[in-house]
Amino acid sequence: MQQDNQPNQSEEVPTPILLVEDDVKLAELVITFLTKNGFQVHHEVNGLHAIEAVSEHAPQLIILDIMLPGLDGLSVCRKLRDSYPGPILMLTALNDDIDEVAGLEMGADGYLGKPIKPRVLLAHIRAHLRRISLQRIENNLSENEQLILAGRLKIDAGKRQVWVNTREIELTAAEFDLLWLLAEQKGQITDREELHKKIFRLEYDGLDRNIDIRVSRLRKKLGDDPKHPELIKTVRGQGYILAD
């Protein structure tokens, strides 16, 4: 692997990342590459120990293999989503759409297949961390700008809280970001390309289903009927509308 000379967003204090991967040789290559690019990588090989490692190292991002000893990556992701708000990138050697959908429905923020292209991995990591950085900037908005009402929804950007009627809904960081982007243009169509670029900071290829899967998961949490949604409506061939 060659070093990418683009500087990381923080060179003085390396950004902590947790890599959960049982292929030791692959893990060593990834660790070396990411370390050279300004990250502090903690490595765990066993799925059962991954949850403890998150508490111990407080990573800003997790790279999680699906096939793991002890506890598979999908189960780890599901358990972590109860308490871990940061980005989770899933890795797998299996080229199977079912695994991709399952990983995203469990709360993963991205999905990369093996063999891993180091520069692509780095681009995904930086895109997700930039999103986290932008969240902090958005939290400095005035109180009036932070609160959006949309039908039965109340969305507070400052506190990153969401309510349906009076019931608070627990969302992951990625789910909240998606909902907030829709809320900022409530009553108007927000196209998939715009959502994809703002969330992933990557160009949309027209085939990626990440946004659609995230919307489906978001509807489920909000109690929105997927067949006849009232809150987040689909505009075929264009994008989505958050009802006003």
Rank of each mutant, 00 (worst) to 15 (best):
P16W: 00
V54I: 11
L19R: 00
S75K: 12
V13N: 12
H128C: 08
S142Y: 07
L242Q: 05
L80F: 04
L218C: 12
R160A: 09
P226A: 08
L94F: 05
Q40V: 15
H124N: 10
P85Y: 05
E193C: 14
E194S: 09
E28K: 07
C77V: 02
E12L: 10
Q9L: 13
N95Q: 09
V164H: 13
S216V: 14
N95A: 08
S55R: 13
K114E: 04
R209G: 11
G103V: 05
E28L: 07
L64I: 09
I116L: 09
R201D: 12
I148S: 04
V20S: 01
I88C: 11
N210K: 13
N37I: 01
L122T: 07
R126V: 09
I189N: 06
N95G: 09
V45T: 13
P226C: 08
R214M: 08
G47C: 01
D23V: 08
S83W: 04
R78S: 13
V101R: 03
P59H: 02
P118F: 14
P16V: 04
L122A: 08
L141Y: 13
R152N: 13
N37D: 04
A50S: 09
L147Y: 11
I31H: 05
S55P: 01
F33A: 06
E56V: 06
F39M: 02
L26T: 14
I199H: 01
S10K: 04
K221A: 07
E168D: 10
E193M: 12
I17R: 00
K36H: 13
P226S: 08
A174D: 05
E138F: 10
R152G: 10
V235T: 11
L122R: 06
F200G: 01
G113S: 03
K25H: 05
I62A: 00
T172S: 10
D156C: 14
P87C: 12
L112V: 09
Y204P: 06
Q185H: 08
E11M: 09
G47H: 01
L178M: 10
E143H: 14
L129M: 15
D65T: 04
E175V: 03
L134N: 15
N165Q: 15
D191F: 05
K186G: 11
